[in-house]
Write a protein that binds this DNA or RNA. Structure first.
Length: 576
RNA sequence: GAUUCAGUAGCUCAGUAGGUAGAGCACAUCCCUUUUAAGGAUGGGGUCCUGGGUCCGAAUCCCAGCUGGAUCACCA
């Protein structure tokens, strides 16, 4: 990177780095720095009477500095929080040489630098627990200025809030917005709690392919890629259901996987192209059994994350305490619309949907119509965790036919805060029925449903060997994390949400400029003036260009000899 | 995809009869031995998102585009 592309503040920091080097200080030392305390630990356990923490060694990032002559205060932020540091010139520089304080601390340490300090803990006159620094060491120099977020009585000042900047620059977001860290710690707690719960039950965590020759297990459009050596199309998985069931066939009676799945569909605050699901399959169980498991597991998650079954989400308090309300899909629609659709055929459903102003289209079969009616009339009203059971067979090609009711399958979803958080079935293990269902999907595909499933012969072959009756579950980790952390957007529970690529101005190589006779030192200047390509330079007014170059030379204090106007004209004319 | 709002200094934001671009924090220089978002003084810092247009003159008005937010529709 050329120096002229840097802001003044970045230049100042690079100069400070050079000065440190001149003083013999390595701003990026290799050796470890011994730490024996954390900020939160000191703030919690320091006690003035017992005089503990009188020899602490702690490291972190300098977040603020207040310098007043030979005494200064700074704030140090480590992983756990912040603590105030007190620097006194004569404590840090016990001899005659006051360079460490006067030059290194006061002039060469910037906000954002990572330092290690040793000293003792005391309480200031203002009553704030602080570290009296006896020595400090530069551990990493920060070359970019940090947005300074200040906080007083819970009110934030100058907060770094622009979502685009925050998501594109998550490191910075985490440094200056401490509550962001909290959200991700909670997300990990969600996952760990589930994993512990499942391991305690003796289920086996497994891994299955992400690159798949056929995609399946869900209704979604996939990402497509290509393997060169095999010269074969591969898809990134949209679900791992079919592979996990093949493991159940193989004799694992309880298997689960936390899986990144990929769906090539729209993006908004509930959808990211890659997302995480936990899928679980347990042999010899059914969907009623699985409902009990979901209730118990999610209740434990809520307790682990927030210490209570009640979670504030937006304007609502959601209570995960068992048992949750249970509806069948038909009874839910009847409850919220007063209409019994359980006996309707496709034409009647279409008519009902139109009457209820439900969005439908020509490609929809009976199952999708019912799902649409349910989605539009019921979901918004389901805030507390609720199970919706018994879905139409047409939209659930992997679920087992209902044990008593024709046309339905044994499937449930848990809906919470109007969003699906899990989906589960008594898994279809009849290989002949499964083949027919896949064939039905192929029909839907021909009608234009681009999410219809494809027929997977390998999976069918496995089923033909015999799969025990099995209960299966998929639970959305991102959605669950959003609820558990009261996050309005999926981007807030993903460290690095997918973003559109930032557009960068195209620039020609330096050689193209020097080939015209332009001195290399001036190339950066010309580009800074806005002539990033030879094509742009071709149309430049030489007089204007000359003035801009001289102006930047002066402004940036480059002290280059200014070119003659004739030379500039020749450069521009040379472009053919 | 539709609608709508927005893009000005490192950060948060002002900026209308179209007429030399502002504040606070951050940064620099100087003064100061304990400050609680902020000690005092002085100073530097801008492609006003990009490209066209109108105009003597555009951050401002018009058109197009880019990017993002919000709401809605579809997938988890």
């Amino acid at each position: 990177m050329s120096l002229i592309e840097l802001s003044e503040q970045e230049l100042v920091r690079r100069q400070a780095l050079e000065e440190l080097q001149k003083l013999g200080i390595n701003a990026y030392p290799a050796e470890k720095f011994e730490i024996n305390a954390t900020t939160s630990e000191i703030l919690t356990f320091y006690n003035e009477e017992s005089k503990n923490y009188q020899n602490v060694s702690i490291a972190g990032r300098v977040m603020s500095r207040r310098i007043m002559g030979s005494a200064s205060f700074a704030e140090l932020q480590d992983e756990k929080g912040r603590i105030q540091l007190y620097f006194n010139r004569d404590s840090i520089c016990t001899g005659e040489d006051k360079t460490l304080y006067n030059t290194v601390f006061k002039r060469l340490v910037d906000i954002g630098d990572i330092i290690g300090v040793t000293g003792y803990v005391f309480t200031t006159k203002m009553g704030e627990i602080s570290i009296h620094v006896s020595d400090f060491k530069m551990l990493s120099k920060s070359l970019r200025p940090l947005p300074i977020v200040k906080e007083k009585d819970g009110q934030l000042f100058d907060a770094f809030t622009d979502p685009e900047q925050r998501y594109r620059n998550r490191s910075l977001d985490l440094i200056v917005n401490p509550n962001v860290k909290e959200t991700f710690i909670k997300r990990t707690k969600v996952v760990n709690t589930m994993r512990n719960y499942l391991n305690e039950k003796g289920y086996l965590e497994v891994e299955t392919p992400i690159l798949q020759p056929l995609y399946g297990g869900a209704a979604a459009r996939p990402f497509k890629t290509h393997h060169n050596a095999l010269d074969q199309t591969l898809y990134m998985r949209i679900a791992n259901e079919l592979y996990l069931k093949r493991l159940v066939v193989g004799g694992f009676d309880g298997v689960y996987e936390f899986s990144k799945d990929f769906r090539n569909e729209g993006m908004d605050r509930f959808h990211n192209p890659e997302f995480t699901q936990m899928e679980l399959y347990v042999a010899y169980k059914d969907y009623y059994w699985m409902m009990d498991l979901v209730e118990e597991m999610v209740e434990q998650v809520a307790l682990a994350v927030n210490g209570t079954t009640q979670v504030q989400v937006g304007d609502n308090v959601i209570d995960f305490k068992r048992p949750w309300k249970r509806y069948t899909m038909y009874s839910a629609i009847q409850e919220f619309t007063g209409i019994d659709i359980s006996q309707m055929n496709e034409a009647e459903l279409r008519e009902t949907a139109l009457k209820l102003k439900v969005g439908i289209d020509e490609t929809m079969g009976k199952g999708k119509l019912i799902d649409s009616i349910f989605g539009d009339t019921c979901e918004a009203k389901l805030i507390q965790p609720t199970f919706i059971m018994d879905y139409p067979i047409e939209m659930s090609p992997l679920a087992k036919k209902h044990r008593t009711t024709e046309g339905l399958v044994e499937r449930f979803e848990a809906i919470c805060n109007s969003k699906e958080i899990c989906n589960a079935f008594s898994e279809l293990n009849d290989p002949i029925d499964q083949r027919q269902r896949f064939e039905g999907q192929l029909e839907l595909g021909k009608r234009g449903d681009d999410e219809a499933m494809v027929l997977d012969e390998d999976f069918l072959k496995a089923l033909e060997f015999g799969m025990p009756p099995t209960a299966g579950l998929g639970i959305g980790i991102d959605r669950l994390s959003m609820i558990m952390t009261n996050s309005a957007s999926i981007q807030d529970v993903l460290f690095f949400p997918q973003m559109r690529a930032e557009k960068k101005a195209a620039k020609d190589d330096n050689e193209k400029y020097t080939a015209l006779g332009i001195p290399a030192a001036w190339v950066g200047v010309i580009q800074k003036a806005g002539y990033n390509t030879i094509e742009q330079l071709k149309n430049a007014n030489p007089n204007k260009l000359h003035q801009e170059m001289c102006g930047l030379n002066k402004k940036l204090k480059l002290e280059l000899p200014n070119p003659k106007i004739e030379e500039v004209k020749v450069w521009v004319e040379n472009i053919s």
